[in-house]
Design a protein around this nucleic acid. Structure first.
Length: 417
DNA sequence: CGTGTTTGACCTGCGC
DNA sequence: GCGCAGGTCAAACACG
């Protein structure tokens, strides 16, 4: 067995089969590479203009040992590129600042409007009529970019009286389109009219290319129907995590925007939820303790959402801010406490936990599906890959958990009345 | 062969 | 009571 060492001269040093002397050389080279990495990292971290000048000085001595030809040409290109990136950074920073300012203005205006429109108590357990009037909205934008971007995802959580919703359905057979035009997910928890039997029902609107949203639960399709007024078929799914689980969901494309998926969850789980399915913690019994976990991806989404609505980094803060402006600027805190959290915990025994990873890719078949004479490709082939899919799913899960918590509150309220 | 989907038939509730 | 629409069932089928 022969090894042609002559070929190793130009090697990058990854091959472990080299001789001892070469290993030492590798270590030296790795040392240089480590320094280079640190310097590159310094360059990449240079977001703060205050520190940029300092880092510029730190970097310069490092470049001296570089080869002459590299220094003259590529170094100049790198510097030019760096300057360009700095300028882009400045521009982006201004955009973010502007967005934040706009948001705060809107927040203030909205708080004033709300104050006039209804009493100040947040989701108080007062009269059912009052509760029915309350509307809760959560808007997320994972990319923080243009809303018209196809990949943009917004989340809207709405609490709305069921009889109003049903009136809309009667008229149009599609839900409120108010938020559709900006690529949003809308979660609507329905509370029935005061006299009707209340049944947990959460509707989620999502701009989604896949046939269904991955919410972490396992579902079995048991039917499909063309609903009046919407040529897109409505699919019926049943939870199969545990036998006899009564939870069902309906999935239908929005008539006016085929890219929007309307998913309606109904019922109460009779089993512990799989990790990542905290989404449907939602419709679960309010007496069942459960964890609402945010994955890193979801936290990322929520963090980015701050460019639109808040400077907070978690859903609970985000929600609380909507109702209570003093919590708006608690952006730097890592605490998950908010009056909203407390309310949910006290009312529904939900536990908000710090971000952690969660898995969710259950029950996917990877096949093609037909929607109104259109074929929607495999889940995994579209929607920008697994990570994005996961993020969306988990975000939807989060919003649904919140929606369900509200549902539980309403249910309790109904029982108490 | 087990699991999930498809799809026509059937059931149920509601308005007239 | 009738018709309509939404929801569900279950046999047939597809897929891995």
């Amino acid at each position: 067995m022969q090894i042609d060492l002559s070929l190793k001269i130009a090697d990058d040093g990854d091959d472990q089969s080299e001789g001892k002397g070469e290993e030492e050389q590798e270590q030296e080279e790795e040392g240089i590479e480590d320094k280079e990495k640190e310097k590159r990292k310094d360059q990449e971290d240079g977001f703060d203009p205050i520190e940029e000048g300092q880092k510029e000085e730190d970097i310069s001595p490092v470049r001296k040992p570089l080869p002459e030809n590299f220094k003259s040409d590529e170094l100049c290109e790198l510097e030019e590129e760096m300057n360009r990136m700095k300028k882009e950074n400045e521009v982006l920073r201004k955009v973010v600042e502007q967005t934040m300012n706009d948001y705060h203005d809107l927040q203030i205006k909205f708080a004033a409007i709300r104050k006039n429109a209804q009493d100040n108590s947040f989701l108080s357990l007062g009269s059912k009529e009052e509760a029915d009037k309350r509307t809760l909205q959560l808007v997320l934008a994972p990319n923080g970019n243009e809303i018209d971007d196809g990949k943009e995802l917004g989340l809207t959580l709405r609490l709305q009286p069921q009889y109003e919703e049903e009136e809309k359905i009667k008229n149009t057979d599609v839900y409120d389109h108010k938020f559709d035009q900006k690529g949003s997910v809308t979660a609507t928890t329905r509370s029935s009219p005061p006299t009707a039997n209340r049944k947990a029902r959460v509707s989620v609107r999502a701009r989604c290319q896949t046939p269904t949203m991955n919410d972490g639960c396992q579902w079995r399709k048991y039917g499909q129907k063309i609903a009046k007024g919407n040529p897109c078929p409505r699919a019926y799914y049943r939870c199969t995590v545990a036998p006899g689980c009564p939870v069902r969901k309906q999935v239908q494309r929005c008539l006016e925007d085929m890219s929007i998926l309307i998913t309606t969850y109904e019922g109460t789980h009779n089993h512990p939820l799989p990790v990542g399915a905290t989404a449907l913690a939602s419709t679960t019994s309010s007496t069942t303790p459960m964890n609402f976990t945010l994955s890193e991806d979801q936290d990322h989404l929520l963090s980015n959402a701050t460019t639109i609505l808040d400077t907070t980094s978690t859903a609970p803060h985000f929600l609380s801010s909507y109702y209570s402006s003093p919590y708006l600027r608690n952006s730097t805190t890592s605490s998950h406490y908010s009056p909203f959290n407390e309310h949910i915990i006290n009312s529904s025994k939900y536990l908000w936990t710090p971000p952690s990873t969660s898995s969710s890719d259950l029950g996917r078949s990877g096949r093609s599906y037909r929607f109104s004479d259109q074929y929607w490709g495999s889940d995994k082939l579209k929607w920008g890959g697994k990570d994005e899919e996961k993020s969306v799913a988990e975000s939807v899960g989060g919003i649904m958990a919140v929606a369900s918590a509200i549902n539980s509150i309403i249910d309790k309220e109904g029982q108490a009345a």
